[in-house]
Nucleic acid binder design. Structure first.
Length: 283
DNA sequence: GCAGAAGTACTCCGTCCGTC
DNA sequence: GACGGACGGAGTACTTCTGC
């Protein structure tokens, strides 16, 4: 079996149809899918078998999954197909993966071939997402809503019927009640998206009498200031390689100071300022 | 008064983390 | 990598509030 570790790539693309598919997954299930989507390349003609170690997966996602966790997660994932609405007269119900194997620490899997039109050789509307933004979010609904809104970030807003959004997210019965839905889904999603992603959202409720029937998400570029950005890096990526400058890797200490990974010496004040501005601009 | 939103408290279960 | 306990998020149901 050819072994190929996970790449350091963080970007993936999905078609509009796939982003808007109806499915309900928990955090780890979504993270597994989105992590493996970063291994799908634009020029790929077909899906490959992805072979990697559990340690490699944990390294890329900053998780600490055990083989037991993975087993639970994959079993759950394989029992939750997604529903793709290609058009009004054309829908597909399919699993994300055709198989998932774990053997002595080595994981092997392959996306289901039915997903090819939605992940390979994409010509229609698609969404590019940065795995780092999505992995940081704590709510599974935040991850889904982020992808749904990312597609419309250039337009600046997206309106959903409340019921339509609940259907796409496949929320349980108790979250069909708007107050529960707002508190457990919308507000939590806004909090995570504002804090961790490249967009910021505002919620506008459209009512018929007293009933909220539509929600408009107003989408803005997240201009999180440098101070907050440094705080996020301190919290989420302490002592990890951030970027290479002049052949040397730069890291951030848990105190928020940038240092050279090789020598452990702090950057000069001037270099640190330039480096933070570079990281902030390219976040 | 009624319908729907808002708020709160509770349970359950998955995830995380420390230990081995 | 496995295990067990702690913790927090998800889900649920109930009461209170608000506006038509």
């Amino acid at each position: 079996m050819k072994n190929r570790n996970l790449s350091e790539r963080n970007y993936s693309r999905q078609t509009h149809v796939l982003v808007n598919a109806k499915y309900a997954l928990n955090i780890n299930e979504i993270d597994i899918i989105l992590t493996l989507l970063t291994e799908v390349y634009k020029e790929d003609k077909d899906f490959k078998d992805y072979n990697f170690t559990l340690a490699d997966f944990n390294k890329k996602t900053k998780k600490t999954l055990t083989s037991r966790d993975l087993n639970t997660c994959v079993k759950s994932l394989m029992s939750k197909p997604l529903e793709l609405m290609v058009s009004e007269q054309n829908w597909i119900i399919v699993n994300w993966f055709s198989y998932f194997e774990y053997n002595k620490g080595l994981i092997s899997c392959r996306f289901d071939k039915r997903l090819k039109p939605f992940l390979l050789d994409i010509k229609e509307r698609f969404v590019i997402s940065d795995l780092r933004h999505i992995l940081a979010m704590r709510s599974s609904y935040a991850k889904r809503i982020y992808l749904l809104l990312k597609e419309y970030s250039k337009i600046g807003k997206r309106t959903f019927d409340v019921e339509e959004l609940q259907t796409i997210l496949k929320v349980p019965k108790s979250l069909k009640t708007y107050s529960n839905f707002k508190m457990k889904v919308l507000i939590r999603a806004k909090k995570d998206i504002d804090k961790f992603s490249d967009i910021k959202i505002e919620l506008e409720e459209i009512k018929q009498l007293r009933k909220v029937v539509k929600i408009t998400f107003v989408i803005k570029k997240n201009d999180t200031d440098l101070k907050t950005f440094i705080q996020i890096i301190r919290e989420l990526h302490p002592n990890q390689d951030l970027y290479e400058y002049g052949g040397r890797m730069i890291r951030c200490s848990d105190k928020g100071l940038l240092y050279w990974a090789g020598t452990l010496h702090n950057l000069s004040k001037e270099n640190a300022k330039k480096a933070w501005e570079h990281l902030h601009e390219n976040r």
